[in-house]
Amino acid sequence: MQGQNIWWDYWYFHLTNYALAALLYTLLGRFLLGVLLPPDSPNYIYRWFCRLTDFVVRWTSFITPAYVATRYVPLAAAFWLAAVRLALYIVLYQFGLLPKIVLQPDSPA
């Protein structure tokens, strides 16, 4: 890992992974709050979760059968985002674009 900046040299991986993770956990939070709150709740956290993740839920609704109730679509969206994160990791690994961690032997004191 010497001679490389583990953040700036791999910003494309970190930024994408971070954005996907933030969306994924927001979707899980939206689902959990959706269990406790009514769909038209004025709770501002729930409203913001909905506002941040509405586009993902809209895309996921297109590939989710109508039999799945609307309140469960965020779970499906979270699954697809987790799959995208895994695919991103595997593809970048195949092209050698992931940060490599190399353990250095202990230097004598």
């Binding site: 297109f62 590939i63 989710t64 059968p65 109508a66 039999y67 499906a76 699954f79």
Partner: peptide, 25 residues
């Protein structure tokens, strides 16, 4: 479960049904 549901969802959207039917299932 989710991957196998994609063709059924596309059938529902493209046929304009928008509701669960036995065919989609």
């Amino acid at each position: 479960l989710f991957v196998s549901g994609v063709p059924a969802a596309l059938y529902e959207r493209l046929s304009g049904l928008g509701r669960p039917t036995s065919t989609a299932m």
